Simulated scan of single mutants.
Amino acid sequence: MEPKRIAMWSGPRNLSTAMMYAFAARGDCAVWDEPFYSAYLSKTGLDHPMRQEVIDGGEPDAVKVAQACLGPVPDAQPVFYQKHMCQHMIDGVPRDWMGQVTNVFLIRHPARVVASFSAKHEAIGLTDIGFQQQAELFDQVAEMTGDTPLVIDSNDIRANPSGMMAALCGKLGLDKSEKMLSWSEGPKPYDGTWASHWYGAVWKSTGFAGQEGPLPELQGDYAAIAEAALPFYERLKTFALKPE
């Protein structure tokens, strides 16, 4: 049978690593952590933490990455979960392959994203957090496939992990698995090269964190960035999956 290929589209600081861990815990799923990150840094010249290590540890040729997204699945697993960052899909990065995979859009309120991201990387702008790119990719996938893509909100997952994972698996045509609700503590062999800088909190986890509290209060430029991102989040939120 043809493997199920899942492209999960997120921005930074958006439960994306925990979701990758959840799918890896199934046992029937190969995962790939941010395939286009090396190409993104190579093309943009951006000075991200561990920049050279990220470039050297991945594939800087975006065309080859796109081909691999549709290529043989590691360990011949029946499910191939690809954790993608929307902001990585810049001009020159192929998108035609997206019509041949199942796309899911993982969203989070921009105030929470900005608060979390700025704690790790102070110099940020709207393009760094991927909300506008996520909306563009959503529309492009809808046009490619003729269907409304799946959307799932990280806040809903944290509030009801079992129900949301069950609902997502149902929509993806996968068997439900309670294994997705927990994982081992510490680094994973499939983590990206950059994990030591970004994944400290999720390395300490063994499952999804509980429901989040009130929205953080942002000031100045950070507040303006979150406000600019909010319409993109709110539009996709109208399509968000409900728990089972």
Rank of each mutant, 00 (worst) to 15 (best):
P214Q: 09
L236Y: 01
S154W: 03
T193I: 12
W183N: 05
A240V: 09
P161C: 06
V73P: 05
W183T: 05
G58M: 13
D139T: 05
E59D: 14
A195N: 15
I6A: 01
Q100G: 03
S10P: 10
Y222K: 14
L236N: 02
Y40R: 02
S205A: 15
A119I: 04
V141G: 11
M8A: 13
R108A: 03
H197S: 12
M1L: 12
G210D: 11
P216I: 11
M98F: 04
Q82P: 00
I157F: 06
M144N: 08
A68K: 15
P35K: 06
Q82I: 11
I124C: 09
E212A: 12
P214G: 07
H84R: 14
L168V: 00
W9I: 15
L46K: 14
A62W: 01
Q87P: 00
P49C: 13
R158P: 00
E2A: 12
G130L: 00
F239N: 15
L174I: 13
F208Q: 08
H84I: 09
W97C: 06
H88A: 08
G220C: 07
K43Q: 15
W32I: 04
A226P: 04
S182T: 09
A159L: 11
D175F: 00
A68V: 13
A7Q: 10
M164N: 01
E244Y: 07
F232T: 01
I55F: 10
D56R: 13
Y21V: 02
M165W: 08
V54Y: 06
A76E: 13
G220Q: 06
F232R: 03
Q219R: 14
T193R: 09
A240E: 08
I6C: 01
A228Y: 04
R51Q: 13
A166T: 15
G207Y: 06
G173T: 09
P216L: 14
G213E: 09
Y190A: 12
P12C: 08
S10V: 14
F80K: 06
A22F: 03
E136Y: 03
G11Y: 04
D28C: 02
V93I: 02
F80P: 00
S196H: 13
L150M: 10
P35Y: 09
P161R: 09
A229C: 12
F105G: 05
Q219T: 15
G170P: 02
I90Y: 03
R108W: 08
T148P: 00
I124Y: 02
G130K: 03
D33M: 06
A135D: 14
M180N: 04
